[in-house]
Structure formats: C-alpha cells, structure tokens
Amino acid sequence: MKRPVAVLSAILSATLLVAGCAGTDLAKQRFPRTTIPANAENVADPTGTTGTTGTAAPGQPVEPAFAPDRLRLTDPCELLDEDVLKGLGTPGDVSRSGFSRCSNFMTDKAGKDLAVTVDLGQTMTSEIKNADKQLAGLRSAEQTLDNSACFVSVITQDKPGLGITVQIGYKDGDACAPGRTVAESVVAQVRDRKGVITPAKGSLITLDPCALPDAGAVEAAVGAGHRTYPYGLHNCSWVGDGPELTVDFRHTFVPDDREFDEGQTEVDLGGGVKGYQKAGATAFPSCEVKWVQRETGNDEGEVVEVKSAGPEKAQFDRCATAVTFAKVLLAKIPKG
C-alpha cells in the first residue's frame, strides 16, 4: 500500500536531495547505506583538539547541552520559534521528518517561498574542515547551492563530528542570512532546554544504536577488527574486511498491510514480533530486515532496520546474518 504524496512531502524530498550535496548525506540519516563515506569518523580511533573556541575533547560535546543523549530528547519542531519565523515572513505548518528533523514551508515578507529546515545531531565531516566562522559561540560553516539554498551548520562535537544544521531554501535573496538567524535561535533554545520531550515507554528515540548491541554480536556479524561508524543520532554501521552491518532507528510511515517493500518476505523474530526481509541483488549485495517496534498513530510508527551487506566476493549469507542480528538487537530494546 502506498501513502499519498502531499505537496510538502515532495518539496521536502527535493530539499533533502539538495542537502546531500552540502557535505552531509542526509539521505543516510533516514536509510542505511551499504558503503561508508571515506571521510566518516571511526569511533574506534578518535583524535581531536582541545583548548580552542567551540572545540572539545574527542567524543565530548562542546557544551553539556549538546550531548547526543540530550539532542535525542529534543523536539526539533519546538526549536522553530514562531516569533523568529514571523520576523522572516509568514510561517506555514510544520512538517516533521523522522526523530530529529523538522521543516516549515513558509513565505517571506513579499510572499515568496521560503523553506526552513532544522536537523539535530547531524554527522559533520566536511563541515568541520570548513568551519571558519563563529555563530552563537560555536564554530560554524556555511555552504550555498545554486543561489537557491544555504546550509548553516554549527559544530557541537568532534571525533565523531556532530552538529546542528539549518537549511534554507530561498531563490529570491540571500538564503544564508535567514539561516544564521534561525540557527542562532535554535542554538539558544537548545541551551535553554527548549523542546525537551518525555519519551514514550519503549520508544527507540532514547537509544544509541552504536552502544546497544553486544560486542560479540557485532563481531559475529562483521568479524573481529571491525570499524564503528555512527551516523547522526539514530544510525550506526560496523564495517569489517568484507561484511558490513547497519542499524537504523526511524520514525516513519507504517503501511496498514506492513508492505514496506515489494517482494519482501515475513520472518519470525521471536516473542510474537514479525520482521520483513528483503534481499538486494546489486553489485554490493545486501539483505535488510525491518520491524515495527512501536506504533504511534496516524499510520506512523518507530521502525528498526538492520542491513547486512558486502561485496560480491564476500561469501556469506546476508539474510541469515541480518535476521540473527535482528533477533539479538530486539532482545536488547526495552519493551513498551
């Protein structure tokens, strides 16, 4: 069953494709990928700097307010302050995407389209290298695209790099100017603990996907000596000499018939939980298993995705690996 596509969803999808060109692969925050960016940070080998403005020791936030555990419990829609948006024009309705992204498709004071999106806890790679500005006391980077979009990113953690990005879609003026205004407001509100939520019992939103599984389960899936790559707040990949494994926690559309993918097959994950398996026969073969961890209403819910992948020359059963790991992971997730 397919979900009707609204105009705002189409705009958001186009906006996210644009954002992928800004040095941060936003698509991966929503869907696990089978290849890891060459400049992604390996948490098993952190290095960094201390003592300069807006930097912190490896693995530590620049301020406690920006710790990943706190960002996970911050509602991004609450950070799009209506008074700030009114200063830019006429706000529209907010459009939530996943746990950590929210948009407002509004108009400027002349009635022209102005799209504002905030992303919390984004992985920062090229942004850290290009962070030659300061915003609200934090290192920041800006990138424009075709005079129609600007990405204003503030760095909240090094090694692995994390940050907050405000994305502006605006074809009729300087898109970075409103981006700075909104970003400064967002940073101030995070510091003031605005938008803090109380998670529902059993919600995935509080969980660190890199820390949840046992080391033995990861090693069984990808081998010893693997590298760990966190991506954003809700995605983690482990890469061995051949096999790769990705876990993604998402808040997304849940079809009534649970037909997430054409050609999927149902698998028993134990405890009465049904999973949905789909193999991908590409140059980098993979197998993905997903299940609905918690329904939230309005055809939406929290979904766990486990993907096992590797090059063709890596001979192993990807679906068996994904199912086995999914069962182990499911047992570690607190029950609702």
Score class of each variant (00 low, 15 high):
residue 200 A to N: 07
residue 21 C to T: 13
residue 158 D to H: 12
residue 41 E to N: 11
residue 177 A to Q: 14
residue 293 Q to Y: 06
residue 139 R to L: 15
residue 217 A to Y: 00
residue 256 D to H: 01
residue 154 V to Y: 00
residue 251 H to Q: 15
residue 311 P to V: 06
residue 148 S to G: 14
residue 87 G to I: 10
residue 85 L to Y: 09
residue 305 E to I: 12
residue 260 F to L: 09
residue 60 Q to I: 02
residue 89 G to T: 05
residue 49 T to R: 13
residue 20 G to T: 11
residue 279 A to V: 09
residue 12 L to E: 15
residue 9 S to I: 02
residue 327 K to W: 02
residue 76 P to F: 13
residue 214 D to Q: 12
residue 98 G to M: 07
residue 77 C to L: 09
residue 153 S to R: 03
residue 5 V to K: 14
residue 86 K to C: 03
residue 1 M to N: 05
residue 306 V to A: 04
residue 214 D to R: 13
residue 29 Q to L: 11
residue 178 P to V: 10
residue 170 Y to C: 02
residue 74 T to V: 15
residue 36 I to K: 06
residue 200 A to H: 10
residue 331 A to S: 13
residue 273 V to E: 01
residue 120 L to Y: 02
residue 254 V to R: 00
residue 142 E to R: 05
residue 50 T to Y: 04
residue 218 V to M: 01
residue 49 T to P: 01
residue 116 V to H: 11
residue 66 F to G: 00
residue 303 V to C: 03
residue 235 N to I: 06
residue 189 Q to T: 05
residue 167 Q to P: 00
residue 87 G to D: 12
residue 65 A to P: 08
residue 258 R to S: 07
residue 205 I to S: 03
residue 285 P to A: 07
residue 60 Q to Y: 04
residue 88 L to A: 05
residue 158 D to Y: 14
residue 97 S to H: 14
residue 256 D to S: 12
residue 113 D to G: 02
residue 222 V to G: 01
residue 312 E to G: 12
residue 326 A to M: 03
residue 325 F to Q: 00
residue 261 D to N: 13
residue 184 E to S: 15
residue 34 T to N: 05
residue 327 K to P: 06
